[in-house]
Design a protein around this nucleic acid. Structure first.
Lengths: 216, 216
DNA sequence: TGTACATCAGTGAACGCGCGTTCACTGATGTAC
DNA sequence: TGTACATCAGTGAACGCGCGTTCACTGATGTAC
């Protein structure tokens, strides 16, 4: 064995990490194999001894969120404990946080890449769906508050997190983007039965009260 | 005048229409100028007498939803009357409809193109933001039910529509995609105070009842 | 009505470029003795 | 410990290709007479 055992695994992970960062920033078509390999400290020629095609790597990158058993958020300063009983509100707050908004490189792929996926292959969509369902299932299992959300509510909360962040990132005005994130976070927490009081000042709390009866 | 007056306007519109369909299907990078012009019955060389760059055309395509004074949905069999008092539930139902899900070509650009936009220029984002705010404002002005949604609720409803449809389109399993659209539609109508009874059978209605107290 | 003409909408060859992928090779490595 | 060697991870030139954009031109058109 001319190279130490595990060497290839280490390098392979470096390539996936480089790809994850670059795809999140520029999308599938916006990144070349050459750039990915350069990001891993290599030249482009070696790529095809690790992956069959660029698309195969893309599918692998998509799968590394929520589904990894060692998963934790990558966003600086935001912590989520997947085994905690109130993981639901933690996920909502982390997902719609300013940190996640700004940290495009370490973004959730569902925020950074969904339209690439919608145009992509069946295996790409399968990877995406697995991540989304993992998120829904985390939200559903969260029993903090009283009883936690129904499956329907958990799906809507997840869609609100993902959709809110996607739209916020596509806006030109930062203030409007922040306002949208706040709105989605507030409503998502409400939907989960996780309240919003801790987060809000008095004035906002009154607004939250006024809002509820209108929905019944 | 060798060509009839208005000739260039007609051809220009044909190019924008062709671009709208193709961008919706394949995204900015997935479509070439040659394909756009072929879709308008022309060859690629003439493009630059109508638009300065491909990006300029993209910005123009983005702007043609909700903001057009003559706007109406393009989805076969779905009608929305923007001047109606209950335009809110109409928009929610149309946006999350099976028709809109399937008709990628005539899709709302916010569903088909948001991540392209997030990576794009400031002018692209400005066009996107205008469309989103137009949608929020339509929802907010809808007074059907009692009083209509607050701005915060209107933003969340719009994010739920857009996010739900984006995620549904990125899923591999059609059944799961349908379930997600349904969940988002139900919760969005609830959020707007537009009820869901008309849409639901008895069993579902009970579920809707059970769901509400959990949120308080 | 018929013809000559000026206009300009549209054509398509050409530009430099970077892409995904292949493959003959180079050279750093751990092993055998 | 020191040297010769077999392995294979990584290199970079080369492939055919399609891209966005430019530009000299062609030829269909409405107008003037």
């Amino acid at each position: 064995m001319p190279y130490p055992a595990g060497h290839r695994n280490v390098v392979r992970k470096r390539i996936v990490e480089s790809a994850r960062r670059l795809f999140n920033r520029h999308g599938f078509d916006g990144v070349s194999v050459k750039q990915i390999m350069a990001g891993a400290g290599l030249t482009h020629g070696g790529f095809y001894s690790y992956f069959e095609t660029k698309s195969d790597l893309y599918v692998e990158v998509l799968g590394c969120f929520f589904t990894d058993p060692e998963w934790k958020t990558c966003w600086e300063g935001v912590e989520v404990d997947l085994s905690s009983r109130d993981v639901g509100p933690q996920v909502v707050r982390a997902y719609l946080s300013r940190q996640h908004f700004e940290d495009v490189e370490n973004s959730c792929p569902m925020t950074a890449l969904p339209t690439d996926v919608a145009r992509g292959s069946a295996s790409t969509k399968r990877a995406f769906e697995t991540v989304f369902r993992a998120m829904v299932s985390v939200l559903e299992r969260s029993t903090a508050g009283d009883g936690g959300p129904s499956k329907e509510q958990a799906q809507a909360i997840a869609a609100l997190c993902v959709g809110g962040m996607i739209v916020a990132r596509a806006m030109a005005d930062r203030v409007h983007a922040d306002e949208l994130r706040d709105a989605c976070m507030g409503i998502a927490l409400e939907l989960g039965g996780w309240g919003r009081e801790r987060r809000l000042k008095n004035g906002d709390f009154k607004r939250a009260q006024r809002v509820r009866p209108a929905a019944s």
